[in-house]
């Protein structure tokens, strides 16, 4: 019995030690572009003007303000927190990496309130827009997640 217990404990400890090193290989880089949109003014303050036409096509706001893009290296099951304007925070968690897709959980919250909690299977490379959390009086937060850039 004592030998069996020792064996089980050793197996558990070894698996705990091996697991993180196996997971370390699964890393995915995600580019997070943060924009605040509103109808106050008509300025497009974008880091890259390539977004301008796309934003006009996709949304009907007249004013956009883009923050500096943030590059995040996601490790499996590890949560990465990104501070957003107006006290919001974005939490990204890599859930799985398949052959050409990545499974990412994106959570936007502020003061403990969960604005959006989504699990996305994104083709690598891929892009997805998350938006809607209110900013200021009439503005909204828009987040663009890019993988495989």
């Amino acid at each position: 019995m004592r030998k069996l217990s020792f064996f089980v404990l050793s197996a558990v400890l070894i698996s705990l030690w091996i697991n993180p090193s196996l997971q370390a290989a699964e890393r995915v880089r995600v580019k997070v572009q943060v924009l605040t949109a509103s109808n106050e003014g008509t300025d497009f303050n974008l880091v890259n003007d390539a977004y301008r036409d796309q934003l006009i096509e996709l949304f009907s706001y007249s004013h956009y303000e883009q923050e500096e893009p943030v590059l995040v290296s996601l490790q499996r099951a590890e949560r990465s927190k990104i501070d957003l304007p107006d006290g919001y925070e974005l939490i990204l968690t890599l859930q799985a990496v398949e052959s050409n897709r990545v499974l990412v959980q994106a959570l936007i919250r502020r003061e403990g309130r969960q604005y959006v909690d989504t699990v996305l299977s994104i083709l690598n490379p891929g892009v997805v827009f998350l938006g809607g959390p209110p900013v200021g009086a009439n503005g909204a937060l828009i987040i663009v997640l890019e993988t495989g850039f």
């Binding site: 580019k31 572009q33 890259n48 390539a50 977004y51 796309q54 893009p69 499974l103 309130r113 969960q114 604005y115 959006v116 909690d117 989504t118 699990v119 996305l120 299977s121 994104i122 083709l123 490379p125 891929g126 892009v127 997805v128 663009v144 890019e146 495989g148 850039f149």
Partner: peptide
């Protein structure tokens, strides 16, 4: 998009789950 061109397709993003509290 950004500094690079990204090739996208209709099945580029599958939304597995989405929920909101607010």
């Amino acid at each position: 998009s950004g500094d690079s061109d990204v090739v996208v397709s209709p099945g580029m993003v599958d939304v597995k789950r989405v929920a909101s509290r607010v």
